[in-house]
Amino acid sequence: MSQTPHQDDAEDATGVDVTDPAEETAAEERDARVEGAGSSEDSAGADDSADPPTPTDHVSGSSDPNETSQPSVFTGVDTDDADEADGLDADDTRADDADADDTAEIAPITAPTIQGVRATGAIPIVGDAMPVTGAVPVIRPIYPPKSRTPWIVTTIVLFLLLAGSVYLGWRLWTVNGEWQDYSDQLTQANYDLGEQIAAEQLIVTQKENEVALLSEQLSASNSRLLDVSAEKADALDNDAWNQQIVEQQGNQLSLGQAATASLNSCIDGLENLVEYVSAPEDEYDADQVQDYADGVVELCAAADTATQNFQNAFTP
C-alpha cells in the first residue's frame, strides 16, 4: 500500500481507515499496483543501497528523494489491510536480503522490525487515505514493544533487598541474643553488687553506731578531762595559795615566837627587878639595880616591837 503525501496527511489527521467495500476494492487494486512497483524498485535497489531502507521506500517505491524523505505516519489499518501489508513486508524482506548481498561491503543499517513493521521511527501509513464518512471506528493503538531491562533490574534490586533483609534479620537476631546475654549478666552483677552494698551498708551502720558511741564517749571523756584539768588547776591554785598561807603562818609563828620570847624575857626581867627593888637596901647595889632596870626596859621594848610585828603579821 502506498499513498501520496497529501493522502498521508489526511489519514494522519483523521487517524481512521476507510471500511467501505467499494473503497476496499479500489484499495486492493492500488495495492496490486504498488506491489508491481515494488518489484521494479527492488531491481533498482542496488542504487539505493547506500541509504537505509525505510518503510516509505518499500511502500511507495518512488525514487523521488522528496517523496522518500517525506515522514510517514503509520496509523492503524483494518485486518485485511494488515494482512496485505504483511505480505508486502515479506516480499520486502526478501528484497532486503537481496540488497544485503549487494551491499555486503557497506554495513546496512536496518531498523528492527516486529512482524514486518519497523519498531522504531516513524510509523508508516499503509493504504490510501479516504475521506471519512459514516461511523468512525475505534482505532486500536499499536504500542512499541516494551523493554525487559527494567524488570530485570527491578528483580535484581528486589533480590538484593531480600538478601539484605535476611542478613539484617539474622544480624539483629544475633546481636539481640548477645545483648540479652549481656543484660542477664548485668542484672546478675547488679544483684551481686546490691548484696555487697547491703552488706557494706550494714557494716557502715554498725560502724556509725560505734562511731556515735565512741564520739559520745570521747565527748564525755573530754568533758571529764576538762573537769579534771580544771580541778587540777584549781588544786594547784589552792596549793599555791596554801603554800602562801603556810609561809605566812610560818612567818607569823616565827614572829609570835619572837614576841613571846621577848615578852618572857621582859616579864622575867620585871620579876627580877621587882625582887631586887623589894630587897633590903644593903643587899643589892643601887647602881646595879638601875642598870638592870634599864636592861629590863630594853627587853620589854623589844617585846613590844616583837608583839607589834606579830600583830602586823595578821594584818592583811
Binding site: V153, T154, V157, L158, L160, L161, G164, S165, Y167, L168, R171, L172, T174, V175, E178, W179, D181, Y182
Partner: peptide, 20 residues
Amino acid sequence: AASLAAVLALSGCAVLPAAP
C-alpha cells in the same frame, strides 16, 4: 526508587547496634 530503597536498606546495616 529501587536504587534508593536498596541504598537505604543497606545503609541500615551501618547503623546496626554493635554486639556488647
